[in-house]
Simulated assay, not measured.
Amino acid sequence: MSRLQIIVASTRPGRVGLPVGQWVEAAAGKHGGFDEVDLTDLAELDLPLMDEPNHPRLARYTKDHTKEWAARVGAADAYVFVLAEYNHSYTAGVKNAVDYLHNEWQYKPAGLVSYGGVSAGLRAAQAFKPVLLSLKMVPIVEGVMIPFVGQSLDDERVFTPNETVQASADAMLDELGRWSGALSSLR
């Protein structure tokens, strides 16, 4: 049984991340490489700014929200982070969510879906990779970059990818499945 967790990093009202995350969820379902797909919206999760007294590597969580987050992240075999780019980097909400935990992330692959204007969120994706590496995650090379993301949203805020973006998602999901299997012996 393999489980993919998709994490929508932006928490700002009116954000594009949720429609993009919903598209990734549907694409993963069609792809069929994972038995379960869990779409996690950090705005809905609403984690407070890190409020645990112990270092996350100790896994001595005292708050219910942390225990629930740890269980959800720990159950996943691979991740897709849907990243907005704010001021040439990733959002504070995703950094906070990642920093809550330590062991739960280790030896699992991570795909990055970034979006924005002309830069397609690439600076956020590049800035986020060292964070993932420090937690012993494996950020895969195949990712999805969506330039001018607003042009792919309809009036109901449904994201529809072009062929290149869809092909990138399929390649990313293929690699996530490969790496998830390869890293399973380390978990």
Rank of each mutant, 00 (worst) to 15 (best):
I146H: 02
G32Q: 14
A78Q: 11
A124T: 09
G181I: 09
D174S: 09
G111T: 13
G93R: 04
N54I: 00
I6E: 03
R60F: 02
G150K: 03
L183I: 07
F159Y: 13
V73F: 05
M137R: 03
S114C: 08
S119P: 00
Q22Y: 05
V113Y: 08
R157P: 00
N87C: 03
N87Y: 03
P19A: 05
S152Q: 10
V80S: 13
G29A: 14
W179Y: 11
A78C: 12
V141R: 06
E68L: 15
K136R: 14
E175Y: 06
G74I: 14
V80K: 13
L49C: 08
S152R: 10
A110Q: 04
A70M: 11
T62S: 12
F159A: 02
H88W: 03
S152E: 00
G111H: 11
S119R: 04
L45C: 09
L135N: 01
D64V: 15
E142L: 06
T160I: 01
D99K: 03
K30Y: 01
E163M: 00
G121T: 03
V24C: 14
L4W: 14
L49P: 12
T62M: 11
A75R: 15
A71D: 04
Q5E: 15
S10N: 11
D64Y: 00
Q151H: 08
A120S: 14
